[in-house]
Design a protein around this nucleic acid. Structure first.
Lengths: 143, 143
DNA sequence: CCTTGACCTTCCCATGATGGGAAGCTCCAC
DNA sequence: GTGGAGCTTCCCATCATGGGAAGGTCAAGG
């Protein structure tokens, strides 16, 4: 199987397959006489695993961990659960953050006439002197 | 005001202030004899505007649009609302996507014993031949 | 046999937003 | 005049991905 077919079969772009090989996520593939990479079902299976992990939002680093665990027949499921759980916490945090933004934005959009007058509460809010995160660097404050 | 003070006052790092100038998001600042950038209240106000827009999750490009609208006294609030509304849709889509991931992951983690046995439904699912996005490129399929 | 074009290879560059750090100024306080 | 904090520019790294160039290869069809 050539890289294009492996790409087709796994849903991972050829570009990414080469990249994964380059960063060591997958083993360097054997080559045919014409220097083409050769793939088998095993490799496609691995690529699919990676694809699914990425679809679930795992980073490549996390995916690597999962991949190793997957290939380690003696692993403990607790190790996997730990990775997944950390990721769940991550997702929850990001979702909460985005929901905060969403709420604010919706409120502003609601208050905005959306007409042909320049008056706009959205811009007023952005410009407003509301709580700006207090800058806390260790500057000398030499005014 | 030097860049450090402007940074303090706006909550935008000096590094980012220079970057915003470089990409044309803000006007190049005047310099003193020693080649230091000089900032006034006006600029700090703009930086705060940018900071707040970024905090709401607007990209720098969207922020630029909002910034221009802000400075255009004759703008129509409809234009602003449009940007905000598009962003709301964006946020909603991303939140929904992440919630989908979260749901799947939680389910998997729930089913996972998390013990010292290698049996693990999370890995089983990742490896599983569930629906893999059908690859659709225009390959010749020369098997 | 030769062309065509789809495929493969490597290499470099770009994204978006930010940070890190080096090398070399300036400025201020002591 | 010295130390150190601040400023300047410049380059590099991140993360995951794509774009594209330049060149080799293979298969099909005229």
């Amino acid at each position: 199987m050539n890289i294009g077919e492996a790409s087709n079969a796994s849903g991972v772009s050829a570009k990414m397959i080469r990249y994964y090989e380059e960063i060591g996520l997958i083993r360097p593939m054997g080559r045919t006489g014409n220097n083409y990479r050769v793939y088998g079902e095993e490799e496609v299976h691995i690529l699919r695993f990676i694809k699914r992990a990425r679809n679930l939002g795992f980073s490549l680093e996390e995916t690597e961990t999962l991949l190793k665990l997957w290939q380690d027949k003696s692993r403990e499921s607790a190790a996997v659960k730990e990775v997944a759980t950390a990721h769940i916490g991550d997702l929850e945090r990001r979702i909460a953050e985005m929901q905060g933004m969403l709420k604010t934005l919706k409120h502003l959009a609601n208050c905005c006439g959306g007409d042909n007058r320049p008056n706009c509460p959205i811009l007023d809010d952005l410009a407003g002197d509301g709580t700006v995160a207090p800058a806390k660097n260790k500057m000398k404050q030499n005014a």
